[in-house]
Simulated scan of single mutants.
Amino acid sequence: MIAAFSLETWLLAVLMGFGAALYTSVGHAGASAYLALMALFGLPAQVMRPTALSLNILAGSVAAYRYMRAGLFSGRTLWPLLLGAAPMAFMGGAIQLPGHFYRPLVGIVLLAAAVRLLWPGAFKPWRDATPMPIALGILAGASIGFLSGLTGTGGGIFLSPLLLFMGWSDARTASGIAAAFILVNSIAGLSGNLASVQSLPAELPLFAAFVLIGTFVGTHLGIKRFAADAILKALGVVLIVAGLKMLGLF
């Protein structure tokens, strides 16, 4: 079965593993990278969302466990976010957008993710650290959750900048919060439309194997305070290219 995969499929799987390593090093699960790569490799729109969410659940499970075990976590910050996000991610996942709507929306999300990677200084805290107001956390979680379920991302690219900019978490604790948030959000988003799993590609086990390897590498580096600014900026360029492709600009 493995021998039946094309060289292009193997290359996509390896790149997904590399993306997982980079993203999980900062507490994310890699959905925007998986979506970007699938867009660049020309996978159908109906395959992209369930595949990205499935891989997110795998990477998010490992990342959440490892960051929590390392003490990089805040339940006080997480639970209001999840209270708002989980039901809205379920609702977003239940909405089936036609390809001509889905692709531009994902393109915009990928470009937003690129901004996060290319200009991290834009998300420096604007005030001293303060506990997150519960009502505001629920509202923020609901907004991120709905967009995540709709697009097939976990929401980390929106959550982490928000936590840091608002001063609701330090950078390392934000990694653990984001990982747990992404895991629950991805499960809720996929559960919102279980029928979409019928579109999962036959190559998924291969993708999952490389993503799992990348996740163990990435979380190890993240816990050890590894910084890969140059590599993350290169990934940001990839996201721009993929985002523009999804928008039909080339």
Score class of each variant (00 low, 15 high):
135 A>W: 14
131 P>I: 10
110 L>Y: 09
108 I>Q: 12
108 I>M: 14
110 L>R: 12
114 A>V: 09
109 V>F: 08
122 A>D: 05
132 M>Q: 06
132 M>D: 05
111 L>P: 11
116 R>T: 08
134 I>V: 14
109 V>N: 08
108 I>S: 13
129 A>S: 13
132 M>W: 03
113 A>E: 10
116 R>C: 03
122 A>C: 10
108 I>G: 09
107 G>S: 01
125 P>G: 00
117 L>Q: 00
133 P>I: 03
122 A>W: 11
111 L>S: 11
129 A>N: 06
120 P>V: 02
126 W>D: 01
121 G>E: 02
130 T>Y: 06
108 I>K: 06
112 A>C: 15
110 L>H: 11
115 V>I: 15
108 I>F: 13
119 W>H: 10
115 V>R: 07
112 A>P: 07
126 W>P: 00
117 L>V: 01
125 P>A: 00
119 W>F: 13
119 W>M: 13
123 F>G: 11
120 P>E: 03
106 V>W: 01
125 P>Q: 03
127 R>D: 00
130 T>A: 14
132 M>H: 02
126 W>R: 03
130 T>L: 11
132 M>E: 05
113 A>W: 02
135 A>F: 13
127 R>S: 00
124 K>T: 06
107 G>A: 01
116 R>M: 10
118 L>W: 05
115 V>F: 08
109 V>E: 12
131 P>D: 14
124 K>G: 04
118 L>V: 10
121 G>P: 05
118 L>A: 10
134 I>R: 12
129 A>R: 10
132 M>F: 01
125 P>N: 02
115 V>M: 12
110 L>G: 12
113 A>V: 05
122 A>I: 04
126 W>E: 04
108 I>N: 10
135 A>D: 15
127 R>T: 00
116 R>A: 04
120 P>Y: 05
106 V>T: 08
121 G>Q: 06
119 W>I: 12
122 A>N: 11
130 T>P: 06
107 G>R: 01
124 K>M: 03
131 P>T: 07
133 P>Q: 06
133 P>D: 09
122 A>E: 04
123 F>Y: 14
109 V>Q: 05
121 G>D: 04
113 A>S: 14
117 L>M: 04
111 L>W: 08
116 R>P: 01
130 T>R: 15
120 P>H: 04
119 W>G: 04
119 W>V: 14
127 R>H: 00
119 W>S: 11
119 W>C: 10
113 A>N: 07
108 I>L: 15
120 P>M: 02
135 A>G: 15
117 L>D: 00
128 D>T: 11
128 D>G: 10
135 A>C: 12
134 I>K: 08
135 A>L: 15
112 A>W: 11
110 L>P: 13
132 M>L: 13
126 W>Y: 06
108 I>R: 04
120 P>Q: 02
135 A>S: 15
132 M>K: 05
111 L>Y: 08
123 F>V: 10
109 V>R: 03
121 G>Y: 02
